[in-house]
């Protein structure tokens, strides 16, 4: 059989077949299943590093909440938990659409795959818009800012600049992960349109999906930790 370069889809000599049907695994793997397993293991190891990256913020939270509970309680009372809840729902929905996208790719549903990628992208945008318009902007205007930029007069504990440092740091790093994820969905959409994904080859959909789920899981923890303290 003629060899087809691993990442030049659609140029193969086999006529009338979409690229995902003619996909050939990279030479140094024994078979496509091994390659898929290896890619997935790589993604999981990467996710471990992501969790440990956020672990620093969780330690920041744990230690500072232990040392200055009153700053955290009052700081948290200045957040509107309803927006947090709304955003949680948005992210959970997007997690579902991503899982569904993987299912579509596995079962060869090209239309469903593209629809789910677009839906996820829209939900991600909604998350960011809510974050920026209803959370970041008003807080910025009132001076609820980290550390030295803090200028909100109605504090009840002088350690509140720390709380806002945590709030902006944690949600900011999380939001930057959402932005990266949305870039990945644009890339997935372009490839899905070219027919790169199907039952025989959907590694990228699976990988990006896993990444998106971990971003969701981080938010599952951040939401009660930031918004629901009493």
């Amino acid at each position: 059989m003629a060899s087809i370069p691993a990442d030049k889809h659609g140029t193969g000599s086999v006529e009338n077949l979409p690229p995902h049907e003619t996909y050939r695994h990279a030479e140094h793997f024994r078979n496509a299943a091994d390659e898929f397993d290896a890619a997935k293991m790589g993604v999981w190891l990467f996710l471990a590093t992501e969790v440990l990256l956020f672990s620093g913020l969780f330690v920041f939270y744990g230690v500072m909440r232990m040392l200055h509970p009153e700053a955290f309680i009052h700081g948290s009372s200045l957040l509107d938990w309803r927006w947090g809840l709304f955003n949680t729902i948005v992210l959970l929905l997007s997690s579902f659409t991503v899982a569904d996208a993987v299912r579509c790719a596995q079962s060869g549903d090209q239309k469903g795959l593209k629809r789910n990628i677009v839906l996820t992208f829209i939900l991600g945008t909604a998350f960011l818009l809510i974050k920026f318009i209803f959370e970041y902007a008003p807080k910025y205007a009132e001076g609820k800012l980290p550390g030295a930029f803090f200028s909100y007069p109605n504090w009840e504990s002088p350690y509140e600049p720390l709380w806002w440092g945590l709030y902006w740091g944690a949600t900011g790093i999380h939001a930057s992960h959402v932005v990266v994820g949305m870039g990945l969905f644009i890339w997935l959409y372009i490839r899905a349109k070219k027919g790169h994904f199907g039952p025989k080859h959907y590694t990228a959909v699976e990988g990006v999906g896993l990444y998106w789920h971990i971003v969701d899981i981080v938010w599952i923890f951040l939401f009660p930790m930031l918004y629901l303290i009493h």
Partner: peptide, 13 residues
């Protein structure tokens, strides 16, 4: 930004 996490004057350590 002087977020204060490592600064004892701001409650950090």
């Amino acid at each position: 930004f002087h977020i204060g996490i490592f600064d004892p004057r701001m409650g950090g350590d």
